[in-house]
Amino acid sequence: MHKLPDDAFLKIPEDRTFIRKRGGYKLPLEVSKPPHVLVGASRTFFVFSNDFVALPPRQIGISHKKSEALALYLNSDFAVYHQFLTSPEIKRPVATLKALLRLPVPFSDRDRGSLSDWVALYNTIDASGGGTNLFGESDIASVSLRPFLNEINKLAFESLKLDARLQASVQDLVHTKKYLVDGQVGEAAVRRPDDSDIDTYMSALQGELDSFLGEDVPARHRITAIRSDDAGMVELELAQNTSEAQTKTVFTTNESGSGVLSSILHGFREKRSQWVYFDRNVRLYRGSNTYLLKPMQRLHWTSSQAFADAQIVIAEIFCQGHSSVELTNR
């Protein structure tokens, strides 16, 4: 959310214009003064305001000279990730002030350079009207930051100097894994991955494997994925005598191929208790090729899973590569 709707603000009636004496009034008054960031008690919004707004109980106000930059940063995936890991029960609206205060802020008033990109992005969003609401309307005061989230995240990751692996951890937790906490089986985590998800997974897997080889070994990985409704298979093939990035291809299998993939995966399902079955990844090592079989659920096709898969493949090939064919199910 970029701005709160006008009807979210009420003029304080005269009979409630008082200040507390025992609890102190300097700090509450200070955070009510603009420029400041208005924070929802359940962390559902972080909105910059340039008006004097008295905050109701449990809502948080942050007074900062460059509050517009802070408001954008607080809307980034990293801020959500950090609050998720540091708040005791973020799923319910009990995110704590203590957790919010622990959030690292990658810019300061003293370092004007660190702020300039944020302020520029805020001005761009402000000038554009901030996008549209759920109904596609753009002419109301409450507007969404959703169209700008990629830019906000990019800026946050650059400011925090997070590498690709850490960025994937943040984004996969916020957009996928978060929906599996506390016994949830959220659609975002268990839905069937689309071609774009698979391509992202393959890019991360290929990048990680090839970066391990680096410039010292003239070989790169060619990756092919075959998808069906229930299961998918990724083939990693080592292309020799090249330092050029190799192709990534996705195929959709026919009915019989789909049956074969599903039956392999079902064969490796592990019975953990009377009623719970875990779908696990299957890895097959054969000569220059490695095959990864995975259930067709989004959580198995994230970038962070690709990094984890690459590490396991490297470890298993490196440490157990003395025989020609090995089959592992973990």
Partner: peptide, 24 residues
């Protein structure tokens, strides 16, 4: 021609890469 050796298999490729990094 750093990291010279027989790549052939993924195991060799990964080992050569790792050994090169250790020596670097």
């Amino acid at each position: 021609n750093s990291g010279s050796g027989n790549v052939e298999t993924p195991a060799n490729a990964f080992r050569l890469a790792f050994i090169a990094k250790c020596h670097r």
